[in-house]
C-alpha cells in the first residue's frame, strides 16, 4: 500500500509542476508547445519495450511490436516536427539578439 501512496504522491506533485511550468506562455508558442508536449508522451515507448520484452505468446509479441512502432512514431516524429517549427523562429530571435547588442 505504501508504494501506491508513493505513486499517488508523485502523480499529484507532477500535476502541479505541469501546470506551473507552462503558466506563462504567449499564444505565439501554443502550437510548438502542444507539439513538444505531444512528443514527451511518446515516452510510452518505454512501457511498450518493457511489456514486449516480457511477452511469451507470439500474439502478444506482435501486438507489442505494433505498440513499439506507434510509440516511436509519436516520440521521434514529435520531437523532429517541433524542432522544424522552432527552427522557423530562429531567424527573428537571432535578429532580435543583434538589435540588443
Amino acid at each position: 500500500m505504501t508504494e501506491s501512496i508513493a505513486l499517488l504522491t508523485i502523480f499529484v506533485l507532477a500535476a502541479f509542476v505541469g501546470v506551473e511550468v507552462i503558466s506563462k506562455v504567449s499564444s505565439t508558442l501554443h502550437t510548438p508547445l502542444m507539439s513538444g508536449a505531444n512528443a514527451i508522451h511518446g515516452v510510452i515507448l518505454v512501457g511498450a519495450i518493457i511489456v514486449t520484452g516480457q511477452a511469451e505468446s507470439t500474439l502478444v509479441v506482435i501486438v507489442g511490436l505494433l505498440a513499439v512502432v506507434l510509440a516511436t512514431v509519436n516520440m521521434v516524429g514529435g520531437f523532429v516536427v517541433t524542432d522544424r517549427m522552432l527552427e522557423m523562429f530562429k531567424g527573428p530571435a537571432a535578429r532580435k539578439k543583434e538589435l540588443h547588442k
Partner: peptide, 12 residues
C-alpha cells in the same frame, strides 16, 4: 512524464 503532459495539456 504522462502527468506533466496531462496537466500542461489541460491548461493549454
Amino acid at each position: 512524464a504522462g502527468t506533466l503532459v496531462g496537466a500542461a495539456g489541460t491548461l493549454l
